[in-house]
Structure formats: structure tokens, C-alpha cells
Design a binder for these strands. Structure first.
Lengths: 158, 158
DNA sequence: TGGAGTTTGACCTTTACTGACCTTTGTTGT
DNA sequence: ACAACAAAGGTCAGTAAAGGTCAAACTCCA
């Protein structure tokens, strides 16, 4: 008994399949009308079915003539990538381990040397001094930034 | 789905591209007629697409036979680039300005698209929520990370 | 029957566009 | 001269049309 979310998911995946590009653009309101639901339902579908963990990336622009763009991400090296994701998803973020993975990703040409240098700079603890934040809060922030950086790499393609 | 602003932006950039000079002159009213919009729409395009951060400079003269002149600012060399970076990362760090600077650096091929995407993710305010930090502290942190990232790129060479 | 997953709607932010009103500058008639 | 007018461009607040967020309500099984 598939539900609405499943139908929309299927529809979007078909769109992606027949698209000649690595992404499709949709209008949130249009899609919601097509499936006769509230617009925020679309956000739910995107969050639950088109997450990075599932191999998708979503970006959007607000305002008049805004849009939502869904990328199909194709990891060059599936093994390294899934390892990276696991690392990211781990409860307590460990910058040293992240650094280790980064190095490997660099060796495997998933990220360039320069990109690695950028991401490395996120992991330097001393930048986070002077904030009133606790150790845990800083780790959480580093994790978010690290994850965002890797997503950016994926989004960038090549 | 490009909108009017996008079309006018494209048109003006083409004009600049084929111009033998570093600037183009337009008449606000003429341009507005050409695109069938109100004159102040032109001001919106200029403000949102031809700001200094994006590498353009606009000057104008009012009154009879007035005009608007749009300069493409010369590509920055490395020295002035770092000067600009200092300026951007000055006391009151403005993420939006930084973003425009980043876009510009991307256009100048100083950073790649992927690198720009990574650095862009540093500037997203919502990653810094949940920290106990104040607005000012977050801005300081963003500034440190932004600067470090760009410097990492430059040091990394090729 | 309790919790994970789904659906909804109220409220928010961002971006594009418009129009009324203002300022500046050149021209013209006396 | 110079006052009046015409013809530029500038500003700003308001409106509309996107997408985002979040928590409450609902459903469906194990």
C-alpha cells in the first residue's frame, strides 16, 4: 500500500532517469498541485527520500521564480564514500579520524589537494577558541561543516 | 526558469562582453522599454547583479541626457586579491559580501567551482545555530574559517 | 497500543517587481 | 540672466510569489 510520499518519490526518480543532466528542477507548488497535497509535503519527500545518504542532493532558490533542484549523486568510489558517510553519521565526531579519511579521499582522487587543504582548515581546533561553546558543541559544529564541505564536493560533480 | 532580472543581467553582460571598452553606457528608460518594465526595475538589476562584490561598478548622471555607466572592474591580481581579502575579512565581517567576493574569485579562476562551493558552505548561518555563541562571536568564527580556507587554497598552489 | 512514519497548516524568509514621489541637470522663453 | 519646465535617474516602501520550518495531528502496524 504505497502512500503519497512513495508516489512522489517514484515520480521524481523517473524524472531523474529520463533527464539528460545530473539533476532535475521542479517547482514546489506545481508538484504539490500535481499530487494534490500541501507544498510542505514536497519537503518531507525530499528530506526522507532524497537525502545524501540515499545518494541525492537538493538545492533551491527562494523568491519569485524560485525552484528546487535535485541532483543524483554518483560517488566515484562507493566504498570510500560510504565510509565517509558513516564517519559523518557517527555520534561523536572525531576530527582526527575525519582528517584520516580526508587524506585517503585525497589519495583516491575523490578530492583534490587544494580541496583537502580547505576542509582541513575546518578541523583546526584553535579557530574555535574564544567561542563560549563547549567541546561537544564545537564537535557538532565541525561535523556539520565537514559534512557540508563533502556535500559541496559531491554537488560540484566531475 | 529565468526571470526578467536574469534576462536583463544577461543582456548587460553581453553588452559588456562585446564592448571594446571597460564599460557600457545605457539609458535607464530605453532599457526599461526594451524589456517592457518600469525603470526602477533596472535599478534592481544593477543593485542585485552588478554590485562591487560581484566585480562591477555603476555610476550615473541624472538630468537631461543622463546615463548609467556599468564598469567591469579589472581582474584582480594576487596582491590586490589578498588586500581585498583583508578588506572582506575586516572587523565587521559580512557573509554576503564574502559570498560575492567568493563568486568573483571563482569567475577569476582563482578558485574552482567546487572549492567555491566548499567555502560557501562555511558561510551558512544556520550551521552555527545551537551554539551558545553570540552573533558577533559567530561572525568572528566565520571570518577566521573563511580567511583560513582561502589562504589554504592560495598556499596549496596547483 | 505505542512509536515510527506521514500529512497538514500556520507562520517565516527570500527574491522579484511596481509605483509614487524625489533629486539632478539641461533647455527655453522673456 | 533666470525662472520655469522637461527629461533624465534615485529611493523606498509595499506587494506578490516563490520556498523553508516546525510542531501538531493522523495512520499504520508490530
Amino acid at each position: 500500500m504505497p502512500n503519497l510520499t512513495d508516489f512522489i518519490e517514484e515520480y521524481l526518480k523517473k524524472l531523474l532517469a529520463i533527464s539528460s543532466r545530473r539533476y532535475v528542477d521542479i517547482k514546489r507548488h506545481e508538484l504539490a498541485s500535481k499530487f494534490d497535497c500541501v507544498p510542505s509535503q514536497i519537503n518531507y519527500v525530499l528530506a526522507s527520500r532524497f537525502s545524501l545518504e540515499r545518494g541525492y542532493l537538493v538545492e533551491s532558490r527562494r523568491g519569485c521564480s524560485g525552484f528546487i533542484r535535485i541532483y543524483r549523486v554518483e560517488p566515484v568510489n562507493l566504498v570510500s564514500w560510504s565510509e565517509l558517510l558513516e564517519e559523518i553519521a557517527a555520534d561523536s565526531f572525531n576530527p582526527l579520524r575525519a582528517l584520516h579519511f580526508l587524506k585517503r579521499s585525497c589519495e583516491e582522487k575523490l578530492v583534490s589537494r587544494r580541496e583537502a587543504l580547505i576542509i582541513e582548515s575546518l578541523l583546526r581546533d584553535d579557530y574555535y577558541d574564544g567561542l563560549g561553546a563547549s567541546r561537544d558543541e564545537i564537535r557538532r559544529l565541525q561535523k556539520k561543516l565537514f559534512k557540508a564541505a563533502l556535500e559541496a564536493v559531491l554537488k560540484g560533480g566531475y
